[in-house]
Amino acid sequence: MGREMVTGARNGDQIFLLEPAYTRTSFEQNMALPDRTLDAYATARAGATALIHDAMNTADAPEVVIESLIEAATAASPRWRYTCGKVARQVSVLRRLVPERMFDKSLRKQMRLPA
């Protein structure tokens, strides 16, 4: 969730937004780490790390995103947005149907953030 990907052709023929949820990749293994961390954020860092670790147990395979990319790239008239996988579709539907305040509360709970 939250890793949105905008892609398109350089000539401007196709622009679309891919919206994946959690996806099993080695993305975090390539991130740059700070020389020194701030103790004030230790709890938040540990919580975020645990959340991502838990989410990867049920995350979509990268092929789910590739399938959406191929669908968008080969469509005669591509849509503006493509959700990638079941969870991403559920979030998209909820965002449209549930009042903003309730959606935000649910998302904060899922992300293990204070209400």
Rank of each mutant, 00 (worst) to 15 (best):
M1C: 07
R3W: 05
R3H: 04
E4S: 09
E4T: 09
M5Y: 07
M5D: 02
V6E: 12
V6M: 12
G8F: 02
A9G: 10
R10P: 07
N11D: 15
N11H: 13
N11P: 03
G12F: 05
G12R: 05
Q14D: 06
L17R: 14
E19Q: 15
P20G: 03
A21T: 02
Y22M: 11
T23I: 13
T25M: 10
T25F: 10
F27R: 12
F27K: 12
E28S: 11
E28C: 01
Q29C: 06
N30H: 14
A32R: 10
P34L: 04
T37H: 04
T37G: 00
T37R: 07
L38G: 04
L38V: 02
D39A: 13
A40Y: 08
A42N: 09
T43L: 09
A44C: 00
A44H: 06
R45T: 03
G47D: 10
H53L: 08
H53M: 08
H53T: 12
A55C: 13
A55I: 03
M56N: 03
N57I: 01
T58L: 13
T58A: 14
T58I: 07
A59S: 11
D60M: 06
A61K: 12
E63W: 06
E63F: 04
E63V: 06
V64M: 08
E67I: 03
I70K: 04
A72L: 06
T74R: 13
T74K: 07
A76F: 06
A76Y: 06
S77K: 14
S77N: 15
R79V: 01
W80K: 08
R81E: 08
Y82E: 07
K86G: 02
V87P: 00
V87Y: 11
A88P: 06
Q90V: 07
Q90L: 15
Q90R: 15
V91W: 14
R95V: 01
R95G: 02
L97C: 14
L97P: 03
P99R: 09
R101C: 04
F103I: 06
K105P: 00
S106K: 11
K109P: 05
M111D: 04
M111K: 11
M111I: 02
R112C: 10
R112G: 12
P114Q: 06
P114H: 09
P114D: 13
